[in-house]
Structure formats: C-alpha cells, structure tokens
Amino acid sequence: MRILCVLAMLFLYSQRLLAESESLPTTGLPEQTQALKEAVLQLNRDLFILEEDLLFPPNTQIVVFVSWDKGVFFDLDAVELKIDGKTVTTHLYTEKQKSALKRGGMQKLYLGNLKAGEHEVTALLIGFGPNGRPYKRAASHVVRKTTQALRLELKIEDRQEQQQPEFKILEWES
C-alpha cells in the first residue's frame, strides 16, 4: 500500500514537471538555422542590388522579359534575341520553365547595356505551332533608349479568331 501511495505521488509530481517542461520556449538549432537562412537571403539581396548597380546602371540598362499566356496554339522550344542584328542571348526551354511561364511566371531573358539612341530588337521564336508542326516566327520592335532603364516584354499569346499564336514586343513604362 505504501509503495502504491509513493508511486502515485511520484507519478503526480512527474506529470507536473512534464507540464512545466512543455511550457518552456523552443530554442536551439532550428532557430539558429532560420537566422542563418535569413542572413544568407540578406546577403543575396545586397549582392543582387550591387551587381545591378555596378554592371547595369539605369542609364544604359535594358531588360527583356518573356511571358506566355495560355499556349494552346504554340509550344515554345527556344528563343533567340537580337539587338541591332547581333545575337545577344539564346535560351532553350525545359518543361519546368515552360510550365512556370504558363502559370504566370515571367522570365528575365536578358539583362544588358545599351547606348542611348534608336535600336532594333528582334526575337526569333522556335517551337511547335497548331497541329504540332514546327513553327518559327520573328517579332521586331524599334526602341529608343534614353537615360531611363529600358524594359521590354516579349509576349506570347493565342489569337483565338485565327487559331494562331501571336508574338509581341511591348515597351514598359519606367
């Protein structure tokens, strides 16, 4: 009987201790890891800004984005970007990248520098058109580079009436 009583006492006491220990704040490795991740992100952010300020200042900066809406009549495979007839970048798309574009993502296709004045920007789009046939089209646009950063959007859309894809280069307001 005495054993039982003392065991019961021990049990009750242990429950209280357990409850106390549960209320302790969680500290340790997970928090430290979170702090480190935050620090790495800050570092990355500063480096992004530094890189852009240094290598692509606004007075010469040109950025070209790619966006893709729906994609029923065109399956994008690759893109080639030319400025004043000179190829500045090419990109071959993976399934993952295409899916990201279709779901609303915008790809920063090109970030570079350009002198002030008039320039011709041409995008050559390669892929598969309606009925899965190979498809190759170009879209051109003449832009005027000022001291402001120049932002362009290469937009791929479906033209429902003609059952064909449409490619546009749009200029964004800075």
Binding site: V63, K96, A100, R103, G104, G105, M106, R151
Partner: peptide, 19 residues
C-alpha cells in the same frame, strides 16, 4: 500582374528555386 518583379519571382517559385 503589373510589377515585373512579381512575375519574375513567380517564374522561379514555380520551378522550386526558392532562394
């Protein structure tokens, strides 16, 4: 989506490139 940064971020987000 009016801000290009949102679109660009989404592009990486959908590919699982979180950083």
């Amino acid at each position: 989506v009016v801000d290009s940064a949102l679109g660009e971020s989404l592009y990486y987000y959908y590919q699982g490139e979180d950083v």
